[in-house]
Each structure stands twice: as structure tokens, then as C-alpha cells.
Design a protein around this nucleic acid. Sequence first.
DNA 1: CAACAGTTTAGAATTATTATAATGTATATT
DNA 2: AATATACATTATAATAATTCTAAACTGTTG
Lengths: 145, 145
Amino acid sequence: MAKNCNFIEKLRELGLRPTKQRVKICEALFNREKTFHFTINDLVKMISQEMNEKISLATVYNTVHAFEKKGYLKQISINSDKSYFDTNTSAHHHFYDEDTNELIDCNENDIDSINVKKNITGKKISSVEVLVRVASDNQTQKKFN
Amino acid sequence: MAKNCNFIEKLRELGLRPTKQRVKICEALFNREKTFHFTINDLVKMISQEMNEKISLATVYNTVHAFEKKGYLKQISINSDKSYFDTNTSAHHHFYDEDTNELIDCNENDIDSINVKKNITGKKISSVEVLVRVASDNQTQKKFN
DNA sequence: CAACAGTTTAGAATTATTATAATGTATATT
DNA sequence: AATATACATTATAATAATTCTAAACTGTTG
Ligand SMILES: [Mn+2]
Ligand SMILES: [Mn+2]
Ligand SMILES: [Zn+2]
Ligand SMILES: [Zn+2]
């Protein structure tokens, strides 16, 4: 979804009615230079605090899932309870900082391409994703006595 | 946690009191040949239906998390709403069958070892996990007209 | 300008998870 | 051995996350 422009037209092209809720959500998500990661709660806060708008939580869920289905958002697997979404929809891997709960994108050349040798009969690979968990160096120090 | 034996002793060694709830949960999880993947709900059903025992849902959560913290269970990241646990605590990768919602372990040699070139300053890698999503071959066929 | 057929929103319901008050257990003290 | 005390554990109650669905909206047709 292109930056900084006519979301009304874009939404129509996707077969979604350009309601004011959806346009607001588009502005929050796509009107920026860089892609980013967010939770539904992050997004609701952004909309209510920064944009000073009230959209029902259920509507935010609806819209985010609609955008995901259309391929404009990706859902990212992290343990924990949090479900992250990603405005970077290209195939890419992630670092997850366990201290700060922050997701960081990997570049093309941060990780060599994955070689999957096994294949499951009758099944096709639909994605291969790596999650690298990182934590502060002094985290897992064991005691010596 | 060793198969088919004295869970009471094992639990004591871990510093956990061998309550009847915990022993039951051990039996459900560790008294078997192969490792497996389960959700909290799977486990509650196993206990209530197959073992004909009633343990409060909160206690199952408590116990599973206690075992996880002690390193006898691992939590697995899958999108969706489901949180899976794994009795296979060795470092290993997974296939996820999107049709059946089934998790399948990768063997050592199903995927070449991952080469992470980037590193985040002040952070240490605590795990590197690959998730290979698979789906039925005829799933994502696009229409041609 | 109705009437109708979707679509979309958002409050209500459900499901998942966690906090905590009540209960149980081990150990120390008599 | 009985009782007191501290701590561990359970499970109900509270909260948080997600989905269901009835009401509101919008676009189309006659
Ligand atoms: Mn989804
Ligand atoms: Mn946990
Ligand atoms: Zn990303
Ligand atoms: Zn596994």
C-alpha cells in the first residue's frame, strides 16, 4: 500500500469500502517512511492518543485482519501472549529482543538463505521464517557455588 | 524428565512439591515413548477425558509454566491464537501444517544449520528457530480469467 | 424515493490468561 | 505429638484478548 496518499482510492481498489475508520487506520499504518511492527493494542493507542479518534476495538481487529487477508499486513509468530503485525509484507526474518519485547527486521544478507531438505508429501512450503531471540549478555549468568 | 517412572521423586528434585495434580500432569505429558506437541486445552481434555480426573484450568497453566521454567517444556511460536508446548526441549525446528494445524519436528538434518551474520550490540543470541509453513498443494491456486 | 442486498461497525459474548484469596504442607518450637 | 509459622499450591474470581452477531450503513435497482 503506497505511502502518503489517497487511501480512499486504494481501499476501493481492494474491494473495501473507504469508511472513515478504515481511512484512519490506513493513515496510522501506511502514512510513513519505514515499515514497522505493532500489536492491536499499539494501534488502538496510536489512533486514540496521537490521532485523537475513537474506533471500536472490534473494528480495529476487523480491519487489520482484512488488510492481512489482502496481503498488506503480515502476522508474526512470537511466543508470549502478544500477537504482532508487520507492515513489511516481504519475506523476511526477525530478531526478537527478549528484554524490550522489540521485533527487529533482518535484511536479506543478515541470514543465509535456508535450505529445507525434508518435504512433506502432498504439501507445499508456503513460508520459511527464522526467529532469532536475543537477550542482554549478562542475563543468563549461572551462579558458581 | 525420564519416562515411565517415579514422578514424585523427580518433582522433589526440581523443588516442586509432588501434589496429585502435578503427578497426574507428569503422567499425561512424560509417560510416553515419543515427545509431542500440545495446547493447554489439549492437556486439560486428556486429563479429564482419558485420565478421568478434574484439575482446574488455572492449575494446568501454573504447572505447565512451572515445567517450562524448569526447562522440561518449551513453548512454540505459531501465528494464530493457539499457543503450543513441546515436550521435546532440545533445540529443533518445526514444520507447521496449515491445513491440519499440526506441528511436526524437524530432525537435525532436515534443515542446514542457520548462519546468523548480524549481531545486535550488547545482546546475545538465546535461540534460533525456523518455522516452515506447509499447506496442501492445491491450496493457493489463482484463477485465470 | 423506497425496497432490498450486501457490508461494516461496535456492543455483547466468548475464550484465554493471570491475580489472588483460600487451602495445604513442611518445618520449627514447645 | 500438637501447634505455630512461613511458604507453596490450588482454583475461583478477575482481567485481557478475540470473536460473534445484531443493528446501522451504503450502494443498487425499480
Ligand atoms: Mn488472522
Ligand atoms: Mn510462559
Ligand atoms: Zn518485520
Ligand atoms: Zn517440537
